[in-house]
Simulated assay, not measured.
Amino acid sequence: MNQDRLTPLDDDAITDAAAHWCMRLHAEDCSAAEREAFAQWLAADTRHAEEYQAMLEIWHTADMLPRATHVTELPAARSHQRNWRPLASAAVITLLALPLAGWVGWEQGWLPNRYQHFDSDQQVRTVQLHDGSQVELNLNSELRYLNYKDRRQVDLIKGEAFFKVTHDSEHPFIVRAGHGQTRVTGTQFNVWKYEDQVKVTLVEGSVLVSSNSGEGGYRLGPGMQASYSIGDFEPQLAQSDDYANSLAWRSGRLVLDNLSLSQALPVINRYLDKPLLLADSSVGNIRISGIYDTRDVNRLVNNLPKVLPIYLTRNDNGSTVINRILPSSDKG
């Protein structure tokens, strides 16, 4: 059989088997013989590991699987991020078809009935979620969408996204990013994430932004921004008259409006393979302005010594380091 093509029956069989092994390997009574049988099934076809990984991610996202210590680990080569085949979304349907776990999981709001995964590489991408909401993904961004009985949930894994959310007052739309979340029923807003830093910019409607460390949350109005990072008890709020700068990426522009380098670097580094680094804190106080192409941020980096009193070096890891040019001492 051609290993690159599957019939619908083949698809269903692999999905059913992946669902079975996902539950059995996390069961307390899973035997050594079963684990050996799973290892043989896994080795029989490369698609088995792919589908099992898809099943694991869905269950772990829903917090339904215990972190069992005896579960067979997939080979490292299998665990990288990949483009999800249409079969992956069918994994949820298979889980929901299981009589007890599926029904209880859906009714209790533990398991979704819809799952979508999107990413972008070197171009901005617009996608539509199952509920009709539209999302624009910035370069090098990734998210997943899960539809639960009582809510719609997006996990922004990395990057930046602009949301136009379909109104549904009975099913709130929640974006989880970093160590906090944004909750809406229908509105337009932007979420930017870099490492553990997150910034939410509201364009239309209202949103409730909260950090995982605090309680409640803060409601934003149009033009307001909320920022948080790991350990923050509450988001930092700001009213911005020029919040459009935060949305300039939608037209391929990176706008730096009189920012210090310490403020600008997280924004710039989003577009680089290796992050820019500051040689010391004094370099971070130097300010920068300009409008740049998000698809050619390396040119911005190379031109920094032409517009700022700095010079560039490379460290042992190959990252570019920004150093300050100290003023010459007065000669007596």
Score class of each variant (00 low, 15 high):
Q134H: 12
A177H: 04
D4R: 09
Q53A: 14
D12P: 00
E136T: 09
S282D: 14
M1A: 15
E136H: 14
R24E: 15
A161M: 08
G216E: 05
H48F: 11
L308T: 04
R82L: 10
G221N: 10
A54T: 01
N302P: 00
D121V: 11
R82I: 13
L129G: 02
Q181N: 14
V297H: 01
Q123G: 06
H20R: 13
L278V: 12
L300K: 00
Q108V: 05
L146D: 00
N140Y: 11
D196R: 10
Q153A: 13
N317P: 00
T313V: 08
T313G: 12
A226I: 03
Q122E: 14
A76R: 11
N190E: 09
S133M: 07
Q188L: 11
F118D: 00
L254T: 01
I291E: 15
F162S: 06
N113Q: 11
I230D: 01
E51D: 02
C22D: 01
A54N: 10
A27I: 06
A248R: 01
I174F: 04
S79E: 15
L259C: 08
P86M: 13
T313C: 09
H167D: 12
M64W: 09
L247F: 08
T166V: 09
D4V: 05
A49Y: 03
N323G: 07
R324H: 13
H20D: 11
V283L: 06
V203E: 09
V283H: 01
A43V: 05
W21P: 00
D10R: 01
I325T: 12
I286Q: 03
F118G: 00
F189D: 00
D232C: 09
P66E: 09
T182E: 04
H171Q: 14
H26S: 12
R47G: 04
H117P: 00
V307L: 10
T7A: 10
G290T: 05
G252A: 11
T15A: 15
I174G: 01
S89Y: 08
S319R: 10
H130D: 10
G223R: 00
R324Q: 15
S328K: 14
V175M: 03
P112Y: 04
C22Y: 02
L100Q: 08
I58R: 00
L6N: 04
Q263I: 07
W41N: 02
N2W: 05
E28A: 15
S227N: 08
S213M: 14
S282N: 10
L100E: 11
D63R: 13
L247C: 07
N2G: 03
E51Y: 05
N315A: 12
V127T: 06
W21I: 03
D257Y: 07
D119V: 03
P275W: 09
A238V: 09
N269I: 09
A77I: 09
V184N: 02
N140F: 10
R144C: 12
R151W: 06
A91N: 15
K199M: 07
